[in-house]
Amino acid sequence: MTHLKTLAGALALSVLAIAPAAAQYPDHAINLIVPWAAGGGTDATGRIIATLLEKELGQPINVINRTGGGGIVGHTEISYSPPDGYTLGVITTELSMYHWTGVSPLNYENYEPIALFNADPEAVFVRTDGPSIEDLLSEIRANPGSVKASGANLGGMAHLGWAGVLVTNEIDPAAAPWVPSEGASASLQLLASGAISVVTTTMPDARPMVDAGEVKPLIVAANERVAAAPDVPTAEEALGNKWAAYAWRGIAAPKGLPEDVKARLAEAMDKVVNSQEFKDFMAQRNFGIDYRDAAGFEAFLKDADESIGKALQAVGLAK
């Protein structure tokens, strides 16, 4: 037994010694970590990216769902992985929030951004027979606590989207309390069953319920109207106060990625995001495409970090 172990040890050392003689990147399979569960929007977009990227890079890409902790587990794993280009990850909106709310020290500086590929604004929904946005806000002013809103977990983008609508219209966020839920579909179910009055979420998440005639969008917290729902006004058009809250997704690698690997990945992602297949997929599922290259994505992340920090402070969730 001991002989075997010595032999094994020697073998391991020799393999390690040869390893750095790297060939052209990539020469074996790449893992793509998705911090959210199979079946969700991040998983769906991550898988289509993986399929298309596989064609560009000529190596298999394994999608791994590392779920849990509101995305923290997966995000952390991406940042901890060796920066050799063989572990990539889909990073999402929540990354800008963790260090503000104090649940994890992670922030955008732990990653090497490669490309942003999606951003969707939060929109405000009520039941089809529900009030207009003006009536809704006056009800909240008149009877604080009577209107309950939901959309996802506490302190997530949906929550911020709603709090922003209230704050920009000079209403205390506590006047329309947030009911946390596991996600958009659970919240929409609460709305449809009449247990709560408002849901904020993105258009693609709410699409089926809108088509079913169960709920309707009132406003979208965006800089301009969205292609998926051109007749829904922006917050600024409807209420006169500018407010935008986007949920986004992008591809990133652990910090310290070699420049040539990063360039190769950025080039491949550029082709993927601009391919017809990707555009068709995103349009069919009502996802908005917002493509930014590595430098653009980095600047975007820096901006998002600041603005979300401010919003979280306004709601009282920042530590």
Binding site: A37, A38, G39, G40, Q189, P208, M209, D211
Partner: peptide, 11 residues
């Protein structure tokens, strides 16, 4: 209604 109940129907 497009409301998936579990991971399989979601996919």
């Amino acid at each position: 209604f497009g409301i998936p109940g579990d991971a399989v129907t979601a996919i």
